[in-house]
């Protein structure tokens, strides 16, 4: 199982986002919802950086970089925030505790609504034009089995 914020985890996240939603997830919502996401995907272009503000020491990286083209992930890498912030169109960041809660199943809508993840770079109106694309992207990340940086199992 890949560790959170590792290169192998980023690869799994990429595959999961690009095949999202699975049949089980799709069935939980109206087709209208998925049609809306398909409608906004062509406008989802550029780098999204997802960062941990207080990553424990000795970790490989603190930021997941997703390069998006029409809503599909072209490359997914992990790096340090300082190395990617300038290139990112949007950068969202949260505490390590909140990231662990997310990968453990905490509601993705609450992650946004309660600002557990904050938009620290990027135009807010532009970001919300694709709001539900982003929440589903978080749900896809959440569905990837992950171990914490100390090796503790978080999500199976």
């Amino acid at each position: 199982m890949s560790s959170f914020m590792s290169a192998s985890w980023a690869d799994e996240v990429k595959d999961r986002i690009n095949s999202w939603p699975d049949a089980e997830r799709r069935a939980t919502k109206l087709d209208d919802f998925w049609d809306w996401i398909e409608m906004v995907k062509p406008f989802v272009v550029g780098r999204l950086a997802l960062s941990v503000r207080d990553m424990p020491p000795d970790c490989e990286a603190d930021t997941l970089c997703l390069d998006l083209e029409s809503g599909s992930v072209v490359t997914a890498t992990v790096c340090n925030r300082a190395d990617t912030e300038a290139e990112a169109v949007f950068l969202m960041a949260g505490s390590y505790t909140d990231w662990m809660a997310l990968v453990d199943g905490y509601d993705v809508g609450k992650m946004v609504m309660y600002r557990k993840l904050m938009l620290e770079k990027g135009d807010t109106l532009q970001f919300f034009t694709a709001a539900f694309y982003w929440t589903e992207l978080l749900a896809a990340i959440q569905s990837v089995p992950t171990a914490a940086s100390d090796g503790k199992l978080i999500k199976v």
């Binding site: 919502k29 919802f33 509601d107 809508g109 609450k110 946004v112 609504m113 309660y114 600002r115 904050m118 938009l119 807010t124 109106l125 970001f127 919300f128 709001a131 539900f132 929440t135």
Partner: peptide, 21 residues
């Protein structure tokens, strides 16, 4: 929360993020 639709997060998430701005 179980009665809340995902789309609720649209306007209220926008408000939360504009508040932060």
């Amino acid at each position: 929360w179980g009665y809340i639709q995902e789309t609720f997060v649209g306007p209220f998430g926008l408000l939360a993020y504009l508040t932060d701005d």
